[in-house]
Design a protein around this nucleic acid. Structure first.
Lengths: 144, 144
DNA sequence: GTCTTTTCTGGAGTGAGTCAAGTTAACGAA
DNA sequence: TTCGTTAACTTGACTCACTCCAGAAAAGAC
């Protein structure tokens, strides 16, 4: 787990000012991958005391824009954030409980970028979401 | 383009009652693939006169549940609906203008369902979204 | 034709996320 | 260290896609 000074370095690396809310948000997302905005606000407030929700929204946007965080929004779910960036991994989402898990890209390093017919689009990223049922919900469904 | 009686047959095929709003919604989605709910409401009202937005939401949900429509929700966009179902195709989304185009699945018929490590999830569908820039926006960006 | 069930209407409500204006604090330069 | 600039944060109102609810209407079964 990175420390506060690691986060500070990350912020400076992308020319963002180092502020307590930013460190706290970075840290919260590292601790709770795939957390939604509301939980992040909760964690940040636990560590820092009063922080406006607006600040958290701003910070999340700034960090996402700078590439320190990645925003994911599976259908039917609110926005969630994770700190694993730059490794092109994907996600499995449970249809029943909404749990999210990481999945490394099956096709290797620079993957999935082959659309059979791209309609003239210049494609720079492929996002894959696997839908299914998580182990817990599978068990629960069988026993009922 | 399917006719009203085709739509009627589709509805009966999934044991749904045949109502004017349902026919109108089905028809609107066939005419305007990837339309958002608001546009669909607009089209339906043009054909039918006054229809409550609630009715359209209900119909969209019923038809999606029955498998006659598919709901897609790329990040940063509101829900959109399309009538191509059951052929496992994917989408390209323009980062600039939000345009959506269909892409046939690159890996063939029953594709993409191989996650390298599924964490015990039972996966039943893989959804792929290609992100990029559409031809219009690419041209506009170059000329500016 | 009558009855039951499903659907539609209209209106109020919810909640994630945004906007705007003013205040505060980070950080480079003097 | 202090100062000034500029980015970041606070507060609070607001938007908008979508949902909930209760009553009215219509579809399909008998």
């Amino acid at each position: 787990m990175p420390t506060a000074s690691d986060f500070e370095r990350m912020l400076r690396g992308v020319s963002l000012r180092v502020t307590a809310p930013r460190i706290a948000v970075l840290s919260a997302v590292h601790e709770h991958p795939h957390a939604d905005t509301d939980s992040i606000i909760g964690v940040v407030r636990q560590n820092l005391g009063a922080v406006s929700h607006q600040a958290v929204y701003d910070v999340l946007r700034a960090l996402t824009g700078a590439g320190l965080l990645r925003r994911i929004e599976p259908q039917g779910s609110v926005a969630r954030y994770e700190a694993r960036v730059g490794d092109n991994h994907h996600h499995v989402v449970c249809r029943t409980c909404g749990a999210i898990a990481d999945v490394d890209c099956a096709t290797g390093a620079a993957p999935c970028l082959d659309a059979s017919d791209d309609h003239g689009f210049v494609i720079d990223e492929a996002e894959v979401i696997y839908w299914g049922t998580c182990p817990e919900c599978t068990t629960a469904a069988k026993s009922s």
